[in-house]
Design a protein around this nucleic acid. Structure first.
Lengths: 358, 358
DNA sequence: TTGAAAGCGCTAACAC
DNA sequence: GTGTTAGCGCTTTCAA
């Protein structure tokens, strides 16, 4: 007999140790009906002593994996952690665990991440996938509880929860109008526009922008610019926009990352906030940070995360009628309060930033 | 026979459809040795036609789950997404998938998140857990490949990869000394200090700070302040520090989030960067953002993520000798370039920020 | 090169 | 209230 790392305990080991059957142990750990207090105690003692942990894989083969999944695109978007935080809070005290599947870098990353979760037999999952076809989720939803975040799908086999993007766009445009602006450009995300999903958040926001512009008497100034959803592309687009002939006096960006790109462009061009107003969407922590202090639309991601879990657990418990939650957004007005001015006089060596993709 | 959602295909279905045995299908999908081209083709055709996906749970029961896990504490720390990005890039093209287990909110969250991964039978995992005992990982490492990030453990059964925190602290202190500072306070994280793991990154950074201070002739000014690792606590501590009797002229924070709290305090107190210098650690995107433009230490998280995957796959392939990687950090000097000054004249309505924990 | 059969750890249905 | 047993969908010997 060779020395080997001891195999970790199975339900069989626990049963033997406690002098009961496997079924009994199974019942105890799921606190199912029909176990005497005495047996519960004995079994729990053995579990503790052996350090037994049920394997999720084995459980998944017979019933539930007690795992919920969350597919997120672009791990670097600061809005998603808010949702995860809310979800984790809602999950505390339940027997369910959360795993996150971040979409990989290739174009089909989101779909693959969803597949990862399905292949792992999660008991249900939430997804943020603005570009994937609703039909696919309708099919998946027949077998697995699904909650779609952000989109306003008229779904049947899955739930949705989204911010009211029409209202949000209206808040943004209204705020800029109040400030006296008329030439308000809307910056939005290219991939979403190309995916042709009318219920996707950025599409709805863009529609809301158009409607608000019209209602507020600027129907003739409607101008939507599409950019790849990253700060660099947004900066470039803003640079072109703001140094062009028809310079807008305000820019409403589809999300904060885009807005930050715009702010960067205004900084580079030496434009003051009085000359061009910028407003973002999502109210990420970077927007709220004092030195940035950017006006944005709060989508209440933490609350969203909590509701998502409730919806998912409901579905797991048997609900089949779809629920479509909509959360009212809120305008967060900010203004820069930096007490010191331009850094010309700062005592710093002038080392260039490196070029790595950090 | 009632109508029901069609069960998704199993290996059995594929085998029947292709007219071969289950074993044959299994070999094909793992491209194992000993299948004819003709059979491979037939099986692949059936797989495509039936839309077959192997269940990770069933595979996990017999062999590997083809899943790697990543445990991260505090999903809101902007440094971790960098690592994940690197890991995802390294994983592209392999048969492995990544799942992330975010530590829940309770005190024991990190341990639980690690357990989540083990219970799911990942083929290996990486972890960022500055406060958990090395002994625990030594035990786990005997059965599951583990890579620890950030810590400088002299481990035997798991690998480590960390930034050179001594060098990083030296860069930070050296930079501040070059700027002429002597009263340099170091802000560090309380839980890590309490956990009593000498190899934890913040502990090493603090040691590096002490050593650098001594070497640079400020041994008499060493001052370390412990704070809870969040922006609010850091702001409060900085407020106390900077309005106290012995106001330091520079603060070196253990990570960017703490540094941001300090910057907030300086802003509130109306202290200019010439009066108090602040330096962070991790070089998160918020530090690099123009309006913030905070000097920080780059740990090259993306590259770390790539190396971590390599180490993990190596271990899965059979390596047993431990590897301890150390990455040289880099000082990123920045200075604020905001072209406009204090916001007093800005045309904005004065709406208060709300109090929600968003 | 291919297939038959055992079994991974668990739960659920049923018998006692 | 408790135990027995039949699988879940795979991979892995081992024979053919």
């Amino acid at each position: 007999m060779t020395i080997q790392a001891k195999r970790s305990a199975t339900i069989e080991d626990v049963a033997r140790h406690a002098g009961v059957s496997r079924a009994a142990v199974s019942k105890v750990i799921r606190d199912a009906y029909g176990v005497s207090d005495e047996m519960r105690l004995r079994v729990h003692a053995s579990i503790a002593e052996l350090g037994y942990r049920p394997r999720a894989a084995a459980r998944a083969m017979r019933g539930s994996s007690y795992t919920l999944g969350f597919e997120i695109p672009s791990i670097r978007n600061h809005f998603f952690p808010k949702i995860i935080t809310g979800a984790l809070a809602a999950l505390a005290g339940t027997r369910y665990q959360l795993i996150v599947a971040p979409a990989g870098l290739d174009p089909d990353g989101a779909r693959q991440a969803v597949q990862v979760l399905i292949d792992r037999q999660v008991d249900g999952f939430m997804t943020i996938s603005p570009t994937l076809a609703p039909e696919w989720f309708e099919e998946i939803g027949q077998r697995t509880p699904v909650v779609m975040l952000g989109r306003h799908d008229a779904s049947i086999n899955y739930d949705t929860i989204a911010g009211d993007d029409i209202a949000g766009a209206r808040l943004a445009v209204g705020h800029l109008r109040d400030l006296g602006h008329r030439d308000i450009v809307h910056l939005t995300s290219t991939p979403e526009a190309e995916a042709n999903i009318p219920s996707a958040p950025h599409i709805v926001r863009a529609a809301g922008y158009e409607r608000a512009m019209t209602e507020l008497g600027c129907g003739d100034r409607i101008r939507i610019v599409h950019v790849e959803p990253n700060e660099g592309a947004s900066r470039d687009a803003a640079l072109a926009l703001l140094s062009g002939d028809e310079r807008p006096s305000a820019i409403f960006a589809g999300h904060d990352e885009l807005a930050l790109g715009v702010l960067q462009a205004t900084a580079e061009l030496g434009l003051t906030p009085a000359e061009v107003s910028v407003i973002g969407y999502d109210d990420t922590d970077i927007a709220a940070y004092p030195a940035v202090s950017m006006t944005s639309i709060n989508q209440f991601g933490t609350r969203m995360g909590q509701i998502v879990i409730e919806l998912l657990l409901d579905r797991i418990a048997g609900r089949t009628e779809p629920v479509h939650e909509v959360i009212a957004p809120r305008l967060m007005v900010r203004h820069s309060t930096a007490p010191w001015s331009g850094g010309a006089s700062r005592a710093h060596t002038d080392v260039r930033q490196n070029e790595l993709s950090e």
